[in-house]
């Protein structure tokens, strides 16, 4: 945390103009995200939080202008979609994710245990509840070695205890020199300092 002021930013946004469906969501938006930071994007529905996160992740590569520089060699993006194949079991889903991200398989059982899916590892996901499927997706947070996390509404469909555990993982990632950008409608239940960035709704003049 203290090193943050001197370190290279993990993500640098300069003069970003974001446009979606002919509507300008953001203009001249600049942002630097340093290691050790937890950043909460705030803004009302339709203000462009999701679009901004997708642009930062590199998923939306068109419809913006301006500078975007990512110094993280890998990142984790958690979006609105389930991110889980329902025909596969939680273990198979995560095993595939590890192979795609080139992560060791050793932490797989621990990750599933952390999201309280012990005993469900080998049941096809379509037999799990919505909350359990969500947790399969969230188990990626425990596996990831990426320094930059971009989380879009990570607390959706998660109970209070689960939210607390998630907040702890997020804080731990930042404390370990990573950076986390998230959107949420609820405050982060953690003592870790959170930097709030508001995305004001901007109308085209």
């Amino acid at each position: 945390m203290t090193a943050a002021a001197h370190a290279e930013p993990l993500l640098k946004v300069h003069g970003l103009e974001l446009e979606r469906g002919g509507r300008v969501l953001l203009s001249d938006f600049s942002l630097e995200i340093y290691p050790g930071e937890v950043m909460m994007l705030e803004g009302e529905n339709g203000s462009g939080k999701t679009s901004l996160l997708r642009t930062l992740a590199g998923l939306a590569r068109y419809g913006y202008s301006g500078g975007l520089q990512c110094n993280a060699d890998s990142l984790l993006y958690l979006g609105h979609k389930a991110g889980v194949k329902t025909l596969l079991t939680p273990r198979e889903n995560l095993r595939w994710y590890c192979s795609v991200q080139n992560l060791p398989l050793a932490g797989l059982d621990a990750a599933l245990q952390s999201v309280e899916l012990t005993g469900y590892e080998d049941i096809p996901c379509h037999n799990l509840s919505a909350g359990q499927q969500r947790r399969v997706n969230l188990a990626r947070l425990y596996l990831s070695e990426a320094p930059l996390w971009l989380l879009d509404e990570p607390f959706t469909a998660i109970d209070r205890a689960g939210v607390k555990r998630l907040a702890d993982v997020i804080a731990a990632r930042a404390a370990a020199g990573g950076a986390v950008v998230l959107t949420s409608h609820q405050p982060l239940p953690s003592d870790y300092p959170v930097r709030r960035v508001s995305i004001a709704r901007q109308e085209r003049s």
């Binding site: 992740a57 998923l59 979006g79 979609k81 389930a82 991110g83 795609v100 991200q101 080139n102």
Partner: peptide
């Protein structure tokens, strides 16, 4: 289609390896 709908395609796109191989 399936991978697009459930979002696993996004994860593949974000993988560090070039996309043409998968």
């Amino acid at each position: 289609r399936g991978d697009f709908d459930d979002g696993t395609l996004e994860q593949l796109v974000l993988a560090p390896q070039p996309l043409f191989l998968p």
